[in-house]
């Protein structure tokens, strides 16, 4: 078993209104097979026993799929590895003696809750505006009634893989949510089932995104690089097309 030692500079802040600051901790020995969150677990166990409040951080599945975890490590959302959530980042990617600066996902639209935890409910608010196909339960036609080319289904799934983690927003200098919204718009507008509400959906989601304080896309592509699911920036181009088409051609309000 290979073991490394790290210096951790972690953002500590007791609540949204209080003033936060970095606090430095020595990690102690860490097995390289450990995940990043297990490293925080080990630190937290030690803090609890010493009577200090452990570092609050969000997590649940620890498999890279629920989108709950996330922090900025040395300036990178979800850390240095490509297409990797924080929970799937392992200590073997760090070197003995490294210093890690660990901060929350900061953005105007994500209020800080505590330590590394932020409030991402703005994403749910965007989806509520129309990130769905309006069908009630019951009465759906047979699932094979409308064939969907395999390629189209794959493309829709590429976009639908977004886990709603918010790394794209944290990585963007403008705090834009275009990658998240682009992924949802792409997923639904590519599928035949998504056609009836296509224009309405694009207009509604963009409107809500703007209202919630997310910034504009400056085409800097930091979002794509930070995205743990490899959501492509081409989804933003599709969102722009969908929005333009809807804004200029749609007869719907």
């Amino acid at each position: 078993m290979t073991v490394i030692h790290l210096t951790l500079k972690i953002w500590r802040q007791t609540g949204p209104e209080s003033k936060g600051s970095f606090k430095t901790y020595e990690s102690g020995p860490l097995a390289t097979a450990m995940s990043f969150l297990e490293m925080l677990d080990v630190l937290n166990e030690r803090l609890i026993l010493s009577g200090e409040e452990p570092v609050a951080f969000d997590h649940d599945c620890r498999e890279g799929i629920c989108g709950m975890c996330g922090a900025v490590i040395n300036g990178k959302a979800h850390g240095p590895e490509k297409k990797t959530t924080l929970c799937q980042l392992h200590m073997r990617h760090f070197r003995d003696g490294d210093t890690l600066v660990i901060e929350p996902f900061r953005s105007r639209a994500f209020k800080l809750v505590k330590d590394l935890i932020v409030d991402r409910s703005a994403f749910d608010a965007i989806i509520a505006e129309g990130g769905y196909i309006s069908v009630n339960t019951g009465g759906a036609p047979d699932a094979n009634a409308i064939p969907v080319p395999a390629f189209t289904a794959e493309q829709a799934l590429d976009a639908a893989e977004c886990i709603g983690c918010g790394a794209c927003v944290a990585a963007c200098p403008n705090g834009s949510a275009m990658l998240f919204v682009g992924a949802k718009i792409s997923h639904l507008s590519l599928l035949p089932q998504g056609q009836p509400e296509r224009s309405k959906r694009a207009l509604a989601l963009v409107k809500k995104m703007d209202a919630l304080g997310f910034g504009n896309c400056g085409n800097e592509q930091y979002c794509e690089k930070a995205c743990p699911k490899g959501i492509s920036i081409s989804n933003i181009a599709r969102l722009n097309r969908e929005f333009m088409k809807a804004a200029f051609c749609s007869v719907e309000e």
């Binding site: 339960t137 699932a143 395999a150 794959e154 089932q193």
Partner: peptide
């Protein structure tokens, strides 16, 4: 399955477009 497809769940498809 009918319900989920109607909601836009992108299940895997054969080349002919069926599930």
């Amino acid at each position: 399955i009918d319900q989920c497809v109607a909601q836009g769940v992108p299940f895997a498809r054969e080349y002919g477009g069926l599930l």
